[in-house]
Amino acid sequence: MATYRKRGTKWEYRVRYVDRKTGTNKETSKGGFNTKKEAQIAANLAESKVEYYGVGEGGNDRLANYFPQWLEIYKKPNVKPITYTLQERNVRLNILPRWGRYRLKELNRSEYQKWINELRTSYSEGTVRRIHSIMNTAISDAVHEFNILRENPLVKIKIPKDQTDNKTIKYFSKNQLEKFFSTCKTPVKNAKYQLSSQNYYLFAMLSRTGMRIGEALALKWEDIDFSQKNITISKTLVYPLNSTPYLSTPKSNKSRRVIRMDETTIFLMKKHRINQMEVYLKYKKYAPSEEGYIFHQQDGRWLRTNVVRDYFKTICNRANLPILSPHALRHTHAVHLIESGANIKYVSERLGHASIKTTADTYLHITDKIENDSLNQYEKYINL
């Protein structure tokens, strides 16, 4: 409801309303009108904005104030802790330093697109997509959830693509994989726990099952059924930077899966269990994991993912191989499966991908090779 009063020679209106975002009573006003009629027209427009936006300011909140509330209400309760941590970090380090002083209604599509283009000079395409996704979702919620904006100016923003082919996956050929494990088996001089072959068995499992490093480090002996030749994947280890590690659910619903072991993998895991017992007996300071984890530190705690990565790179150096990461063993397993003639659906399920499309897109150059080989085989057959 609007009220009016004359101040000197000018008119002023006041509109009272309930802020739908906070549920509190608020008031907006404006003066300087030459006549009461002008003030009434302006007041009607203000009341229309209140009805439309749900607040009198219509997006007058600054992003520095809006984002903390958005993160707390819409993200924290609905995403995994590690996801929330990454999103909060991107907001704090990338979004707010650039946009925090802006009011929501001041967001400009052209200026935002220019910022996205600038980000691509410093960050990868994937990183910029993640930053934009956070910003775009937040502004979309300002429209549809908080009702403080009429529209989202950030829809269909274009992310500059990589000019070079940086999406080629990294993996070991069969010969390179043999060289890697041959080097990994060789004991390191002056190693503290030289009898332990844990890293060798960990890398062997990754290369023969295609599981993610976090899934492997979360495994307990009870997750392996030697009689059924199966490994059950139901959790993953999350090791945030400068934070406490914790177990979480797998990456997606499809990541909950049962992986069948081949005979070599079964043999290696049994050898690892024997080696583990020998290590416990030989080194008094090397303690078993009370929770029964298959791979662990000498004090029984989870292995640190960064330590595993560093050791993996050391092996690559010693073997004079490309410096890859343990994740390359997952790609290696997938590529070798496909090259051996495995069905793409089977590969997708074994890796725990969300869809077959994800698998096909990831290993496109491999599936192209298989397709070409198959077509060549067909041509030879039909022309006999």
Rank of each mutant, 00 (worst) to 15 (best):
M1H: 14
R5W: 02
Y17M: 12
Y17K: 10
T22H: 04
N25M: 08
K26N: 06
G31P: 02
G32Y: 06
T35L: 10
A39G: 10
N44C: 04
N44T: 05
S48H: 11
E51T: 11
Y53Q: 04
G54C: 04
G56V: 02
L63S: 03
A64N: 06
P68I: 14
W70E: 02
K75M: 01
K75W: 03
P81Q: 03
I82P: 06
T83H: 10
Y84P: 00
T85P: 04
Q87N: 08
N90K: 15
R92N: 14
N94K: 14
I95K: 02
I95P: 00
E111G: 03
E111S: 04
L119Y: 13
S124Y: 12
G126I: 13
G126D: 14
R130E: 04
R130A: 09
I134K: 12
N136V: 11
N136L: 08
T137P: 06
A138M: 07
S140M: 01
D141H: 02
I148D: 07
E151M: 15
V155S: 13
I157A: 10
I159K: 05
Q163M: 09
Q163G: 13
T164N: 13
N166M: 12
N166D: 06
K167E: 03
T168F: 14
I169H: 00
Y171G: 03
F172D: 01
K174E: 09
Q176M: 04
Q176D: 02
K179N: 11
K185H: 03
V188I: 07
K192M: 06
S197G: 07
Q198N: 14
Y201K: 04
L206P: 00
S207V: 00
R212I: 05
I213Y: 10
G214E: 02
L217G: 08
L217N: 04
A218N: 07
K220F: 05
E222R: 04
D225R: 15
T236Y: 01
S243C: 10
P245H: 07
K251R: 03
S252I: 12
K254H: 10
E263Q: 07
T265W: 03
T265D: 00
M269C: 13
K270L: 00
H272F: 12
H272Q: 11
I274R: 01
N275K: 05
M277N: 01
A287K: 09
E290I: 07
E290Q: 05
H296P: 07
W302T: 03
W302N: 08
L303N: 08
K313V: 15
L324F: 15
V335P: 00
L337P: 00
L337C: 01
E339S: 15
S340N: 05
I344C: 09
I344L: 11
I344N: 07
S348C: 11
H353Y: 09
S355D: 02
N376I: 06
L384R: 15
